[in-house]
């Protein structure tokens, strides 16, 4: 993204960069703050949870350890399968649809885009019973496949949409030139169009992955065996009838969040690299 904005010239007053960096750090800290508190609460001993102190008087790391010994690691794997599976599904289905829609004016194109738009308006929360009944008939209840399908289906609209927008923003002339240069239709797609649409692809990918990673309501309804439950659902069992195991709950949440941030960090670097090596100019 080096050349993406007015490049700060060397004459730029130093003060200004300090202000920019400073405010960016402060904002970053604000966004991290709740999760720092989450971590601090997770390691706070149970009997000091209701003490009004900023920092715990003692650190009890057991809740973070118990996460792994208590079988929740298996739930983390389920979550990973669901998130990766739905992301893959969405990319496989959305890429061709979005590309074709942006490049060809076929008969039901408007109808298709309208369908996508409508889909985007639905959240699975609103129709849990219908979803359950359907997957029950497929015999997919309590399986990873059901969660992959649902998460894929509900995130597809966004992916198609944003990819369509990005493909449309790429001038046809670029493709035509490449085509004339002797790249085949698919060669053009993979060598020219896709790299240019990378920000869109990555956004769609991350969006789906994170949405599937954190999905709760459907998984709660569709998975009944503890071992088949993704982490979000498994964590819910820390909320008991009379008592909440705050440390366990928060420890699990912190652990569930970290892989996503790491993944994002990895992908973001790729995007930046892809762009600096890239072909926008």
């Amino acid at each position: 993204m080096a050349h993406s904005s007015p490049a700060p010239s060397r004459a730029l007053p130093r003060l200004k960069s300090v202000v920019i960096a400073g405010s960016a750090y402060v904002i970053a800290l604000i966004f991290l703050f709740p999760y720092v508190i989450m971590l601090l609460t997770a390691v706070r001993p149970q009997d000091t949870l209701r003490e009004a102190t900023y920092l715990p008087s003692a650190f009890e790391w057991s809740s973070l350890v118990e996460f792994w010994s208590g079988g929740l690691a298996g739930n983390l794997v389920v979550t990973l399968q669901v998130a990766a599976g739905s992301t893959l599904l969405v990319l496989l289905v959305a890429l061709p649809a979005a590309y074709y829609t942006s490049r060809h004016n076929f008969r039901f194109r408007t109808g298709f885009l309208f369908l996508v738009l409508i889909t985007q308006m639905f959240q699975p929360t609103a129709m849990l019973v219908g979803i359950y009944r359907e997957f029950f008939q497929f015999g997919l209840v309590d399986t990873v496949w059901a969660l992959i399908l649902v998460n894929g289906g509900f995130n597809l609209a966004f992916a198609v949409w944003i990819l369509n927008a990005y493909f449309s923003s790429i001038p046809r002339e670029l493709e035509e030139a490449a085509f004339i240069d002797g790249n085949g239709r698919f060669g053009t797609l993979f060598r020219i169009t896709l790299p240019l649409a990378m920000p869109g692809v990555v956004t769609a990918l991350i969006f789906t992955f994170i949405a599937a990673w954190n999905e709760f309501a459907v998984a709660l309804m569709l998975t009944t065996t503890p071992a088949n439950q993704p982490l979000t659902v498994a964590l819910n069992s820390y909320i008991g009838q009379y008592q909440v195991d705050w440390q366990g709950l928060f420890a699990g949440s912190v652990i569930a969040t970290i892989p996503v941030i790491i993944l994002f960090a990895l992908i973001e670097r790729k995007v930046v690299n892809g762009l600096t090596a890239g072909s926008i100019k």
Binding site: G70, S237, G240
Partner: peptide, 9 residues
């Protein structure tokens, strides 16, 4: 059955 325990672990 409902779980009367404080958590599954």
């Amino acid at each position: 059955a409902a779980d009367y325990g404080s958590d599954p672990n």
